[in-house]
Design a protein around this nucleic acid. Structure first.
Lengths: 162, 162
DNA sequence: CTCGTTTGGTTGATGTGTCAACCCGAGCGG
DNA sequence: CCGCTCGGGTTGACACATCAACCAAACGAG
């Protein structure tokens, strides 16, 4: 089970880095979401929706805009928006030209105004500051490269599986 | 709404890096899991279980060992193991000293032997090789730092909320 | 006009994660 | 012996994600 230096396998350093990375992401995500949930009663998904809505100035967007912004698929979005509506964080409001608009409620606005600074502080404390500016910059670059690489790959080998 | 340079908020570069990172992780994870699902009918969770079991030489572990290895909470583990048992990937086998042992089946073994190299190849292609050795090394270091930082933080401020 | 396709959105079934409650046997103070 | 708590594990209810099917308006070609 060795001699595979050129095979698909990862060598020890690579394995270690990959697993450290996975653990880090899980830990960080869990920490952020647990905080959000306990302090503000919001899930990470709720937060993502509210961030996008609240950034939109008018506080109202069409569902597919939210979908584009978050990269969620439409059914997930639809399900989640109905749940959020039940909890009073948003409203679906009929507007003139077909299809409802998603409007953030006062309650939703209050929730995000309260929670966003706290979340940002945690991201700073446990992510930004630990990386430091140089390494953070590198990470950003690599991340973009990876997204692009995967995008290219998908475009060339699964374009509509005709 | 500005003048918060020292506040909890992230500046533009930090925001950008953070969001790139989030997007990268989502994209990569989705890509890996979609592949795993389509080619081998395994979820990421199945894969994680099988990797740990198959690495254990005897192919059998107690549930809480799996829990420790994967950092899953026990109920999630229990649920998932019963589902995997239903699909024939593992068996729960009574052993002498109380509590069942989790055993990987032939089918489970076959699944992981087939899928693991393919997964590793994707990780190499879209993660390891895009980073390159130096940047990957840095990432591993930072990841460990972050995990440690969060660990310390939790140890000091939520030790048994008495 | 009409038919087929696309677009934006909903719905239901099913698989998965999370929380809290519970079960049960082991260790232990009294 | 009794009653504790504790560790390992299961269960049920519920939140969430994913997939495929569906729906209805809009659009475009014939």
């Amino acid at each position: 089970m060795d001699g595979v230096s050129k095979g698909p396998w990862l060598d020890d350093d690579e394995q270690k880095a990959w697993r450290s990375y996975l653990l880090m992401h899980r830990t960080l995500k869990a920490h952020l979401e647990r905080h959000l949930q306990r302090e503000f009663g919001l899930s990470g998904s709720d937060f993502e929706m509210l961030v996008n809505l609240s950034e939109s100035e008018s506080g109202r967007m069409r569902a597919f805009e939210l979908g584009r912004a978050t990269q969620w698929e439409k059914s997930r979005l639809s399900h989640h928006l109905t749940r959020m509506e039940k909890r009073g964080l948003i409203r679906k409001e009929a507007c003139d030209s077909r299809y409802p608009e998603i409007v953030i409620t006062e309650e939703g606005m209050a929730a995000i105004k309260e929670s966003a600074p706290a979340q940002a502080a945690l991201v700073r404390q446990f992510f930004v500051d630990v990386f430091g500016p140089e390494r953070l910059g590198l990470l950003g670059e690599v991340s973009d490269e990876i997204v692009e690489t995967i995008g290219e790959h998908c475009a060339t080998d699964c374009p509509l599986e005709t």
